[in-house]
Amino acid sequence: MFVSIQRALDKLRALVGSRGDACTPDSLDLELSNGLFLSGSVAVLAQGGAYRCLDVGGLADVLRTFAYPQTIQQSAFKTLRPPYVELYEDERRYVVLGIYDDKVYMSEWSGIRLCCSWVVDIDVDRYRRSYEALERFLSGEP
């Protein structure tokens, strides 16, 4: 029901660190988290001036699905249905995506209090497929 982008990125970082090959990436399209990048379908980990690369195939597109969620309009909070994709979570802030009325919504929480809720420009079918792919990635063998 829940997948966490941060957990997925932590797992990907470990994977590239352990299975990636030394490389010189052509370009770095997207920084996923500190020192972890995508270059096309290749995940790139920068480690002390050197790079390790691992082709992660479709996972790259899945991660891009959630890279730039643009808020289309603010909305009164809807009772979001699963699946939920957690974009950020710590003890004080929680940013989560969910579905309502065939649209993807993002809501931001501070502790137990709802701050804001918006419709975002992620296609709902792509959202569901990406969720499933992330779930498989997180539950699969490292």
Binding site: L28, L30, E31, L32, S33, N34, L63, A67, Y68
Partner: peptide, 14 residues
């Protein structure tokens, strides 16, 4: 945050 992400080519969560 969207524009910051796009301008810096960083994932929204980051």
């Amino acid at each position: 945050a969207y524009k910051v992400a796009v301008d810096n080519r960083m994932h929204f969560s980051y």
